[in-house]
Write a protein that binds this DNA or RNA. Sequence first.
DNA 1: ACCTGAACACCGTTCAAGT
DNA 2: ACCTGAACACCGTTCAAGT
Lengths: 190, 190
Amino acid sequence: MTATRSYHHGNLRAALLEEAERALADGRDLSLRELAREVGVSHAAPRRHFADKQALLDALAQDGFERLGAELGEALSAAGFDAQLHAMARTYVRFATRHAALLELMYTGKHRPGVDPGVGEAAERALRPMLGVIVAGQEAGAVVGGAPEQVGAAVFAMVQGLAAMVNLGMLDEAAVDAAVERLILGLRPR
Amino acid sequence: MTATRSYHHGNLRAALLEEAERALADGRDLSLRELAREVGVSHAAPRRHFADKQALLDALAQDGFERLGAELGEALSAAGFDAQLHAMARTYVRFATRHAALLELMYTGKHRPGVDPGVGEAAERALRPMLGVIVAGQEAGAVVGGAPEQVGAAVFAMVQGLAAMVNLGMLDEAAVDAAVERLILGLRPR
DNA sequence: ACCTGAACACCGTTCAAGT
DNA sequence: ACCTGAACACCGTTCAAGT
C-alpha cells in the first residue's frame, strides 16, 4: 500500500469509502481511525467528509443499493416473465454472496430512528426493476392482477429470504431455482 | 434499579443476559462494561461467565432461537395446512417485530468463521416446527411431494423475507397474509 | 470459585491550531 | 478549505491480587 500523496487533492471521501469496502470484504471491523491510517491521513481528517461514523456507513449502504439496482436492471434483458424472475433472483443472490457484509450493512438498522433518507430512497430505486418485471408479467398474463406493490412484496420477500439463507449456508443455488419456480406457480392467474 | 445483592450468588450469568436483552430492546448499544455496571459488578467480572463479548452475544442468540422455536411450535395447534402456515408466518413476523434487534443479532455474522456451533443447532431446532407443517401438508395432499427440506426452504425464505420487510417498514401485516396465500397456491400439487 | 483494580491498547468525537 | 495534534470519555481484554 504505497500512500499516493495526490490522493488528497479533493478525493479523501472516495478514498475512505474504497478502503471501507475493502475492510468490509476482508471481514475486518470498520474503524474510522484505521481507515484514516490506511489512507494516510490523520484520524480527525474524515470529519471533513463524514459528520460521524454512521454517515460513512450510510454512504456505503447507499452506494451498495445503487450498484445492486444496476445489476438488477441488467437482469431485465431476459425474455419472458419466468426467465426474468429467475435471472433477477440469481442476480440478487449473487450480489448477496459476493458482498455479504455490505448487504448486511445495507439492511441493518434501517428501522433505527433518524436514518439518512438517502439510503431508503436508494433502496427503493434499486428494487424498482423488480416491480417492472411484475408489471410486464401482469400485462403478459403470467401474473395475477392487483397492485404490483402487493405482488412485488411476495417476490422481494422470497428473493431476499433466499439470499439470506444462502449466505447462512442453509441453502445451495439449485434450491434457489426450485423455490423461485414454486413462487412463479403461485403468482399465475387462476 | 435497586441492586439486589443476592443476585450474585451464582446467577451473574443470567443477570447479564437479562440486562443485555433489556439494552437490546431499548436500542442501546451492548457494552460489557455497561452491563457489568448496570448489574452492580466490576467490569472484569463477566469474564468468569463469558470468555469474551462474542460469547455473550452467542448465548443471547441461542436463547432467542429457543424462544422462537417454542412460539413456532404453538402455531402447530391450528387445524389444516393453510391455517398452520398462516399461523406460523404470523408468529414469526410477530417475533421479528417484537424482538427486532434480537432477531438481527440471531442472524448476524452466522457466516463468520468460528461461530459457536450451539447457535446453529438452536437455529435448526427452532425451525423444525416449520418442517413438520410441510410434512403434514404433504401427507394431507395440500403440498407437492419432494424433499421436505427443499419445500421448507421456499417457505422459510418467504417468511423470513416478509419479517425483514415488515421490520424495514416496507410492508404491513395484511400484505403478509396475501403473500403467504400466494405461496400456498404455489406449493399445491398439480 | 468468584470477583476486584489497575493497566494496556484501542475506539469515536471534539476543538484549538496550523497551512 | 482542509488537515493536524492533543484531549476526553469511553471500549474489550488481561492479569495479579484479594476473599
